[in-house]
Amino acid sequence: MLEWGNDDTPNNGRVALVTGAARGIGLGISAWLITEGWQVVLADIDRERGSKVARVLGDNAWFVAMDVAKEDQVSVGVAEVLGQFGRLDALVCNAAIADPHTPPLESLDLKRWNRLLAVNLTGAMLLAKHCAPYLRAHRGAIVNIASTRASQSEANCEAYAASKGGLVALTHALAVSLGPEVRVNCVSPGWIDARDPVQQRLEPLSVFDHAQHPVGRVGTVEDVAAQVAWLLSDAAGFVTGQEFVIDGGMSRKMVYED
C-alpha cells in the first residue's frame, strides 16, 4: 500500500484533477500520482470524506466538491482548480455509481437509468468539455475509468454496462477530437478490491477469489493507479484512443458451468 501524507513528497509542477477521489480506485490513483510529484485535485460529491482524505494525503492534495452530472458544478469546480493552480495537465474521470446491478429490465426505473448514465458517462463528457482548453495549453492527457462490464455482462446490469461501453467509445472519439494536443485513453478494471483497508482486514477475500484469476490474485487499486500514472506520463506520448484492460486475465478465460 502507498504511504500517505509524506512531507518529503516532491512536486513536479503538474496538476491533475481526479474525480470520484474520496475512496476506492480514485483515492488510489490520487495517492499514487502524489508520490510521483503531482499536485492532485480530488473531486467528489462526498464533501466531508473528500476534505478529510485531502488533509491526510498532505500538501500536494486539494479537494473540490463536485457532482459530475451537473454542468454548473463541473464548470465552477474546474474554475476553482484554475484559480488555485493556474494550470491543468491531466484529467482522470473515475466518478461513477459503482454498483453494476439494477432491478430486472421490466422494473428498471427510468430515473435510475438516467442518473447512472449521467454520472458514469455524461460526467466524463462534461469534464472533458470544461477541461479541454486548459489541457490543450499544456499538452495534457485524459484517462477515463471504464470497466470490463463494457464487453462482458451478468444479468441485470444494463445501465452500468451501457454507461461503461459508452465511456470506451467516448474515449476514442475524444482522442480524435482533442488530438494532437491532448491524449485520451481509458482503463477498464476487472475485479479490484477497492474496499477500505479496515474492511479488507475484517472480511478478507477467499483463496478461491484469488485463485480463479489467471494471475493468481484479485486486483488492487495500485494495479489501476500504476497504469493510469503511466498513461499520464511522457512515456505514453505515442498512446491515445486506447482501452487498457486490467483484470488479471479474467476476460481471456473460458468459463463453463459444471
Results as ranks from 00 to 15, higher is better:
93 C>N: 15
81 V>I: 13
97 I>A: 12
38 W>I: 01
49 R>S: 12
69 A>L: 14
91 L>Q: 01
45 I>L: 15
47 R>G: 14
59 D>H: 06
74 V>M: 09
68 V>N: 03
88 L>E: 01
94 N>F: 00
85 F>W: 14
62 W>T: 09
53 V>N: 00
53 V>M: 00
89 D>Y: 12
47 R>W: 07
65 A>S: 15
90 A>N: 03
75 S>I: 04
39 Q>R: 13
46 D>Y: 05
44 D>C: 08
87 R>K: 13
44 D>T: 05
92 V>N: 05
77 G>S: 07
59 D>L: 03
81 V>H: 05
75 S>D: 11
86 G>I: 09
39 Q>N: 06
54 A>D: 09
76 V>D: 15
39 Q>C: 06
81 V>A: 07
50 G>Y: 01
66 M>L: 09
56 V>T: 08
80 E>C: 10
65 A>M: 12
77 G>L: 05
70 K>G: 04
71 E>L: 05
85 F>T: 04
95 A>G: 02
38 W>E: 00
98 A>P: 01
60 N>D: 10
40 V>D: 01
64 V>W: 05
62 W>F: 15
84 Q>K: 15
64 V>S: 08
68 V>K: 03
91 L>E: 01
76 V>I: 08
39 Q>K: 12
92 V>L: 07
48 E>R: 13
77 G>T: 01
61 A>L: 03
61 A>Y: 03
96 A>R: 02
55 R>C: 08
